[in-house]
């Protein structure tokens, strides 16, 4: 999972020995978790641009991806505001030499600092795998934002309410494809079942509460019940089976990732890290 080089260990130590009491940075951490998750899925889905199976679906997946980067920016901007207002001084601020911005948070944080879900960093694979990843994630996001739109934090509630409309469409689009491919030909069904087997171990993490989610997501078990109910309904219609007794991977929420994230960040952050502040 985590490569054992020295710089990574220093990062890890820095997080652990932070003088800030943990609860103080909870809201910032939660926002970064939301922002990182949507950003990494954006980066993954973005690779389909110009390569979609047909023109219309190329546009569809790119549209969804644009929604996701919009959400991600909202979360980063809000997180940056809170970080600058608080006494917290996370590493991007030190590195960039001035205030945290949406860009410094996206481009100058390391693998251990990224709090995205493991599910979204998994490979695109074939169209089936991309569809399954999008569906499992969008259904989760739907029920999550449904809760968050009632948050006491007005700004977070507003972002969630706005995003919920977008996500509603993502769910309907991806569910439609799950049914088409699952209930399609022998080959499409087989590919879908393979994609589900590959991604299912990364779904458990969505419902394992991280420290910083306490007090913000009040009923994570409810989230899980609703998620599994929706997934079951769609899978049944698609004649797809849900894997049973699978060991669930976790760690993404706390910065412990699969080996894939390092490669994503290397590609995504390269330009900003070699030419700090570069614009286009």
């Amino acid at each position: 999972m985590q490569s054992e080089n020295s710089s990574v260990n220093t990062e890890a130590k820095k997080i652990q020995t932070s003088k800030v009491p943990p609860s103080e940075g909870f809201r910032e951490a939660f926002l970064l978790h939301l922002a990182d998750t949507t950003l990494i899925l954006t980066q993954r889905n973005g690779a389909w641009c110009g390569h979609g199976p047909i023109l219309e679906q190329d546009i569809a997946i790119t549209n969804i991806t644009l929604d996701l980067i919009g959400q991600s920016r909202n979360f980063y901007q809000y997180a940056a505001k809170l970080i600058n207002e608080s006494s917290l001084a996370p590493s991007p601020v030190e590195k960039a030499g001035d205030e945290a911005t949406e860009d410094s948070l996206a481009y100058l944080r390391t693998e251990r600092e990224f709090k995205n879900l493991l599910l979204v960093e998994q490979e695109n694979g074939d169209w089936a795998q991309t569809i399954v990843r999008q569906f499992l994630f969008s259904v989760y996001q739907y029920f999550l934002f449904e809760q968050l739109q009632n948050s006491k934090d007005d700004q977070l509630a507003a972002i969630a309410a706005k995003s919920l409309k977008e996500v509603t469409y993502h769910v309907s689009w991806s569910a439609d494809w799950v049914i088409r491919l699952g209930d399609g030909t022998d080959e499409s069904n087989e590919r879908m079942q393979k994609a589900i087997a590959a991604l299912w171990p990364y779904t458990g993490e969505m419902f394992m509460q991280a420290d910083y989610e306490q007090g913000i997501i009040s009923e994570i078990h409810l989230l899980k019940d609703r998620w599994i109910e929706k997934v079951k309904t769609v899978f049944e219609e698609a004649t797809l089976a849900i894997p049973e007794n699978i060991f669930m991977q976790s760690g993404g929420k706390n910065g412990v990732h699969t080996e894939k994230l390092g490669h994503i960040l290397a590609e995504m952050q390269y330009l900003q890290r070699t030419n700090l502040g570069a614009k286009w």
Binding site: E56, Q57, Y169
Partner: peptide
């Protein structure tokens, strides 16, 4: 115009291609 397998997909494709 656009390509789609059925009416439901045509509707979704139309939304994505023509109303963005």
């Amino acid at each position: 115009s656009l390509h789609a397998a059925d009416a439901a997909m045509a509707m979704q494709n139309a939304r994505d291609v023509y109303t963005r």
